[in-house]
Design a protein around this nucleic acid. Structure first.
Lengths: 244, 244
DNA sequence: CGATGCTTTGAACTATTTCAACCTTAGTGG
DNA sequence: CCACTAAGGTTGAAATAGTTCAAAGCATCG
């Protein structure tokens, strides 16, 4: 059974969307066990695996990725503390992508058998877990919009806005800044760009005075202006407590 | 209550993933009501709506879309018969995107109250509905990979491969071909390209002898070659019946 | 101090957009 | 049955965006 603080970031996350009962908190504590640490650049889950547990990120940055035939990598999601990385594996069974730790990660595990029990005996909690996967899907859709129809600078701006809000939920921001240890090569794999171009896009945001970004720290200099530039509307993140 | 044939495409879809009991089929029949027809180019749901029902597509092609500040449109998913288009609205509540009928559509409605009942009293069926949203999320991720790291021709090839398989599930293919009434402008909004370039990419696939595409019909000339070119691995579609 | 792993730069090349025109197809009304 | 029209498809050429390659600059760590 999990320490109280082990599920704390998850609680912060879920309680943004709806109220949890004591019983529900207790069920989560029962379901989530065994802490695990993964070094930066190591796989947390490998494509083709059929895991029997799902991973809850407690600290660090992790991402899903696919490798194309010519060896290029594309990240398809980016995760911060309090988020399930592969909750979907509970129902999807076989991993169609890998998951990598982009920085040193602390991870808790949830047995699929325990998740199944939640769906059978705690339907409201199950709906909130379902919602977690739906919010991730909404994030993917915004990612598609940005890749397809925004400038690269606007895409990067929206990633920064979104990350800021997701980190804020779990108290990982300090003023207008947050710790962000990804290299520009990793960022390029997020945005589907070459490293060179990624670098130039970052410089655009710097030159425009939107952000400061050095030594693994991003500082937002003017939230309003950055948000307008990114056309960032946080509605899709569903940060709003209501009965679900 | 729904006609038997009203939920048939949905049953075909769900039964690809796991077995359904008679009771579960009956619950779906109870949940799914009121048929509705929507003309091509009309909105099925509008951004900002808080619908009380979710839409199941019975016939036609529909898509989610977002409009950017400068008026450009990006589609973020494409749906065929047997798929829920906005099942997520049941938990997400507020639509963060619109849904448009790309061709004349026949749609059935599922009350959110009935879906809630399913989560409370039919957990296995609820998991299969959850799975439906997870498969859609997997499709979005592949879309991101294709936009970020594949050639436009390979992206288009993979869209065609995927559509073929999804249509096959609900018996909407004839030999190697299927009816596909989207204009090249609509396709451009799927791939995030200009209409001109979209046209050139289609011509590439034609010239390479992969497909024939005219008069609203796509014919795959050599499935194996197309699949290899697209690097299409259907694993992410989860077309495999197993206990969930 | 000297590696090592990012980050930054320049320049040539390729992919994609834009604009403006023209072509083709499938109706529609006479 | 034909002429007309509207919508969608196709083309060329110039402009912009993004990649590639190769090198140089900058931090961090032992």
């Amino acid at each position: 059974m999990a320490d109280t603080d082990m599920i704390e970031p998850l609680l912060l996350n879920l309680e943004q969307r709806d109220r949890l009962s004591d019983d529900e908190r207790e069920m989560l504590r029962m379901a989530i066990t065994r802490e695990r640490r993964v070094a930066a650049q190591e796989d947390i889950v490998t494509e083709g695996d059929r895991p029997l547990t799902s991973s809850l990120l407690l600290d660090g940055f992790a991402a899903r990725y696919n490798i194309t035939g010519d060896g290029q990598r594309q990240l398809t999601s980016l995760h911060v503390a309090g988020e399930f990385i592969d909750l979907h594996a509970f129902l999807v069974k076989t991993m169609d992508h890998g998951i990598i730790a982009l920085s040193p990660c602390r991870i808790a595990m949830a047995d699929h058998s325990a998740l199944k029990t939640i769906t059978e005996s705690a339907p409201h909690l199950a709906r909130l877990l379902w919602l977690d996967t739906l919010v991730q899907a909404a994030i993917s859709r915004q990612w598609i919009v940005a890749m397809g129809r925004r400038s690269r600078a606007a895409h990067l701006a929206q990633i920064i806005c979104e990350l800021y809000m997701r980190l804020q939920i779990v108290n990982r921001v300090e003023g207008g800044s947050f710790h962000f240890p990804l290299s520009q090569t990793q960022m390029a794999d997020i945005m589907g760009l070459s490293t060179v171009h990624m670098n130039r896009v970052i410089q655009e945001l710097r030159a425009a005075g939107f952000v400061t970004w050095s030594r693994e720290r991003i500082t937002i200099l003017d939230w309003g202006r950055l948000q307008r530039f990114a056309e960032f509307d946080p509605a899709y993140l569903n940060i709003r407590s209501e009965p679900r």
